[in-house]
Amino acid sequence: MDNIKPRVKVPKSASAGEVITIKTLINHPMESGLRKGKDGKLIPRQIINKFTCEFNGKPVFSCELEPAISANPYIEFSAKVNEAGTFKFSWLDDDGSVYETENKIAIK
């Protein structure tokens, strides 16, 4: 799908060993597959079914989403930062697309 823009909030820097909070939001209709359109037919399901977060290539957090997650899925979680590096976030769509974004973090 077009016009999908992931947004992520990560602190610019953290002290070594600090546990930081990461907030993510992506605009997506999360069509549940249970709603009917104007023509009375079911609108096919299309949701983000998986979200993952990696830090320097190592998994930090991941999440499997079902149609019961609201449109524009918002996910907030924590991560422990031991070294400077890059967070990589990916969202997997039912149609096979992958939306990705990256954020760097420095050590104070």
């Binding site: 957090f61 499997e64 609201s70 899925p73 996910i75 907030e76 422990k80």
Partner: peptide, 27 residues
């Protein structure tokens, strides 16, 4: 009470630092 009771599964690792997560769901 939802048509499909599954909502989400969160997977944590020791790198998560804290086992906490927030999201928004449909009821």
């Amino acid at each position: 009470g939802n048509p499909n009771p599954d909502v989400a599964v969160f997977h944590f690792t020791p790198m998560s630092g804290a086992a906490e997560a927030k999201t928004r769901m449909r009821l």
